[in-house]
Structure formats: C-alpha cells, structure tokens
Simulated assay, not measured.
Amino acid sequence: MSGFFTALGEYGFLQTALLAGLLASIGCGVIGTFVVVKRIAFMAGGIAHSVLGGMGAALYFGMDPFAGALLAAIVSALLIGTVRLAWKTQEDTLIGALWAIGMAVGVLFIAKTPGYSSDLMSFLFGNILLVPTRELWLMAGLDLVLVTTVSLFYRQFLAISFDEEWARLRGVPVAFFYLLLLCLVAITVVLLIQVVGLILVIALLTLPAAIAGHYVHSLSAMMLIATLLGACFTAFGLALSFGPDLPAGPTMILLAGGVYVCSALVSQVFARRRAARQATAG
C-alpha cells in the first residue's frame, strides 16, 4: 500500500481517481441513508440497470455517456415512482421490466458502437482510473445539488421516509417529495457508476449506510458516518487494488462487504448482551 501513496504524488490519474471516489462518497452517504431507511434498494437497482440504455444510446450517437446516464436515470425514477404511487401491485413487475429492457437496449447500442467490449466492461464494473478530470466538476455539481436539496427539504424527506401517512396528515405533499427523492437516488446512481459500475452500484449505495445504522439511529448521524465510510472504502479500496493490479471497483465492494459482515456480527453480540443485562435487571 505504501507504493500507492508514493504513486499518488506522481500520477495525476490516481489523484483524479481518488477525488472521484471522495466525491461519490458524498452522495453515497447522504442518499444511501434514505435508500436503507426507506427500504427502496430494489428500486435503486432498477434505476441503476436501466441507465445502461441511456449510456449506450448516448455513446452510439456520439454524446457524453454521463449525460445519457443522468437522463435515463431520472426518467426511470419518475416512471417507477409514478407507478408505485398509482398502482402499488405492479411496482415490482415494472422495476424488473425496466431493469431488463434498459440492460438490453444498452447492450444493443454499445454492440453497434466501435470499442464495444472495453466500453461495456467499463460501464458494468466501472473504471475509476479512467474518470476524466472534466467529469470531476460535474460530479461536484451533482453533489452540490444533492446536499442542497436534502438540506432544504430535510424535514419532509424525514417524514416520508418513516411514515408517509403521518406526513400526508401533516400537509406534506408526499407524492412530490417521494418522486424528488427518487430523482436524487437517480443522480447518486450516476455518481457511483463512475466508481464501481452498474453491477456493483447498489452495494456501495447501501452498505455504508447499513453499517452506520448498526450504531446510530439519527438520520443525520447516519448520513455523516455513511459518507465517511464511503470515503474510506473508495480510498482504501483504490489503494489495496493498486499493488496487485486488481480492478478497483470490486476491491472497494469486497472491502465494504467484509466490514458490513463484521459490523453485523458485532452489533448482534452487543444487542444480545444488552438484552441479557435487561433481563437480569428485570
């Protein structure tokens, strides 16, 4: 790992990769917390995989795949959210259909575009080492949108995350804020695709927040801890993958997954000890 830190001072692409991971961790912590608390990981997965269609179409027509991904993600989020609000019984079917259709359309477009194999693997599994410097500004801008929106409407998002009916009775426009939350999830998915790709995006979106949820119950505290954990996983995952020349995205996810399993075991031990002490005291 020492070789990584030496190379970090010499190679600009490593500095860009590290900064991309840190920028992605902001969305990972802030929006991933809502995904975990509201239990909409499957929705986020549908949004993530439908993005490939937008990326493939943008690539085919000579446009920026990042822009295509953002457009496809927001359209999918609005479609899934609208169907969920109107016809809850068809929600799972629609998500599965968008998941499959988005992947299929993306693969077809990429297949007709020069450089098919490398581009497809990069989209599916990410390649943080190839993030161009210009996209760091776009990632920073998206982070600013996420943080600003959550800060402005924190109470509303908090209300719909835990009890939509109570929020509705309090006069909160639940449908609007639910769709807005899904759009923020879509933006975060696009951020994380740059780092770990479509296949692994849900893991990085949910694992840091899930780990934070083992130890704190305040939403704001979960966001802060999840953001810090996301930054650690991306930074140390990048460092661990550098020496053995491993893919950075899967290394980050294995690191996050290992920490999650250990954290879950530790939290269970503490919970049983607390229960035993309460039973003894009673």
Rank of each mutant, 00 (worst) to 15 (best):
residue 151 S to V: 10
residue 225 I to M: 04
residue 153 F to R: 12
residue 224 L to T: 09
residue 135 E to D: 15
residue 217 H to K: 12
residue 195 V to F: 03
residue 170 R to F: 07
residue 260 Y to A: 14
residue 173 P to V: 12
residue 240 L to Y: 13
residue 281 A to R: 04
residue 37 V to M: 07
residue 85 L to C: 13
residue 192 L to Y: 06
residue 115 G to F: 10
residue 154 Y to I: 09
residue 275 A to V: 08
residue 135 E to V: 14
residue 84 R to G: 08
residue 15 Q to H: 04
residue 149 T to H: 04
residue 133 T to L: 08
residue 120 L to F: 12
residue 196 V to I: 05
residue 233 F to M: 07
residue 76 S to N: 04
residue 233 F to A: 06
residue 63 M to C: 00
residue 36 V to G: 04
residue 243 G to D: 12
residue 12 G to E: 12
residue 155 R to H: 09
residue 50 S to N: 13
residue 59 L to Q: 13
residue 36 V to N: 00
residue 115 G to E: 11
residue 39 R to I: 11
residue 56 G to S: 15
residue 153 F to G: 07
residue 23 L to P: 08
residue 36 V to W: 00
residue 204 L to R: 10
residue 119 D to C: 13
residue 185 V to G: 00
residue 129 L to V: 07
residue 115 G to V: 06
residue 27 G to W: 00
residue 90 Q to L: 09
residue 165 E to Y: 13
residue 277 R to I: 13
residue 183 C to G: 01
residue 146 L to V: 11
residue 87 W to Q: 12
residue 24 A to K: 01
residue 10 E to L: 10
residue 204 L to E: 09
residue 213 G to H: 13
residue 111 A to Y: 11
residue 117 S to I: 15
residue 280 T to R: 12
residue 25 S to V: 02
residue 104 A to Q: 11
residue 194 Q to S: 04
residue 170 R to E: 06
residue 143 D to C: 06
residue 108 L to K: 11
residue 236 F to C: 02
residue 71 L to K: 11
residue 121 M to R: 15
residue 84 R to F: 07
residue 150 V to W: 05
residue 7 A to E: 10
residue 113 T to W: 09
residue 80 I to L: 07
residue 129 L to I: 10
residue 189 V to C: 06
residue 170 R to I: 02
residue 208 P to C: 09
residue 279 A to F: 07
residue 71 L to R: 01
residue 153 F to M: 11
residue 121 M to L: 15
residue 65 P to W: 05
residue 252 M to S: 04
residue 161 S to Q: 11
residue 227 T to W: 08
residue 143 D to G: 01
residue 224 L to I: 15
residue 111 A to W: 13
residue 187 I to L: 15
residue 146 L to I: 13
residue 245 D to V: 05
residue 161 S to I: 08
residue 171 G to Q: 06
residue 232 C to K: 05
residue 232 C to Q: 04
residue 123 F to C: 13
residue 168 R to K: 12
residue 98 L to K: 00
residue 142 L to E: 02
residue 204 L to T: 01
residue 236 F to N: 09
residue 39 R to N: 06
residue 222 M to G: 06
residue 91 E to Y: 07
residue 151 S to H: 14
residue 227 T to P: 07
residue 211 I to F: 10
residue 193 I to A: 11
residue 11 Y to S: 05
residue 232 C to H: 05
residue 37 V to I: 12
residue 92 D to Q: 05
residue 82 T to K: 10
residue 258 G to C: 06
residue 14 L to W: 08
residue 121 M to G: 15
residue 78 L to Y: 03
residue 196 V to Q: 01
residue 106 G to V: 03
residue 268 Q to A: 10
residue 182 L to T: 01
residue 18 L to F: 01
residue 42 F to W: 03
residue 216 V to Y: 03
residue 277 R to M: 12
residue 93 T to C: 14
